[in-house]
């Protein structure tokens, strides 16, 4: 099986040599794969445009002996045009790509993760809902086996009410055993709904006071799990002065 076909999302790319690029892909059947796209930086290249980050493509690769496969054919499945034309949504989409790039393992098939990423990108492309990225981060953590505990105090097992969220223990804490970051009931409710199958409703709901809180918590949680900051998120918070 030297040649294989798959569906993939382009996570990021680097320049290689004079006119080539290394493309990092998250594929449906082969996990995270890095491939070389030859000559794509030339103006004559026919598939260079299809291999830009954020593209969802159908792709053919050649598995050589080294780490890098060679990309031989590319067709576009989704281009997510709206995401590209809006700097803010683009940065948020890149945050999701960066998270997947960090979490996914080379050549370790993870179909659920691939499907989740494609769905999240489609959702963000269709509507500018504030919680898409936070919801994606939370679902990603659950998928990784580190779903935050939101129903019982991580210290005493008390069923609430809760006052704080503890990143080290990955869950909420009651008033008596409070430690970590303060958390509101609204944020806990929202996170429960996201993780409990109520995502559609959450995305429809208008922006409330808990939205920003959940967004910050989800990012902090993922960064805690990855043990590094997400660069795209830092960029999102910037202003020109």
């Amino acid at each position: 099986m030297a040649l294989y076909r798959d569906h993939a999302v382009v996570l990021r790319s680097w320049k290689l040599g004079e006119a080539d690029r290394i493309i990092s892909l998250h594929t449906h059947d082969h996990g995270k794969v890095r491939g070389v796209a030859k000559g794509v930086r030339r103006t004559k290249s026919k598939f260079g445009a299809r291999l830009e980050p954020l593209s969802h493509v159908s792709i053919q690769l050649y598995r050589g002996r080294g780490d890098l496969d060679t990309i031989t054919q590319v067709e576009t499945v989704d281009r997510f045009t709206t995401l590209r034309d809006d700097a803010d949504r683009f940065a948020r989409a890149e945050a999701m790509l960066e998270a997947v790039d960090q979490v996914a393992q080379d050549r370790e098939p993870d179909r659920a993760l691939h499907v989740m990423l494609v769905r999240a990108l489609r959702t963000l492309n269709e509507r500018d809902s504030a919680l898409v990225v936070a919801a994606f981060f939370l679902k990603l953590l659950a998928h990784e086996g580190v779903q935050p505990e939101l129903d019982l105090c991580v210290d005493c097992g008390n069923e609430g009410p809760f006052a704080a969220f503890d990143f080290d223990d990955g869950g909420v804490r009651c008033h008596e055993h409070r430690r970590g970051r303060p958390i509101s009931d609204g944020a806990i409710q929202l996170m429960r709904r996201i993780l409990g199958g109520g995502l559609g409703g959450v995305l429809e709901a208008p922006v409330g006071p808990a939205t920003g809180e959940v967004d910050m918590l989800a990012t902090a949680l993922l960064e805690h799990h990855l043990e590094r900051r997400l660069r795209s998120v830092a960029v999102l918070e910037q202003n020109p002065r």
């Binding site: 990021r12 700097a87 790509l97 830092a234 999102l236 020109p240």
Partner: peptide, 19 residues
């Protein structure tokens, strides 16, 4: 150029100077 994944945002670009 604006590239969040590489950590390049408005602060790293000469946007303020253009404004």
């Amino acid at each position: 150029a604006f590239s969040p994944i590489d950590g390049v945002g408005v602060e790293q670009l000469r946007v303020k100077e253009l404004m």
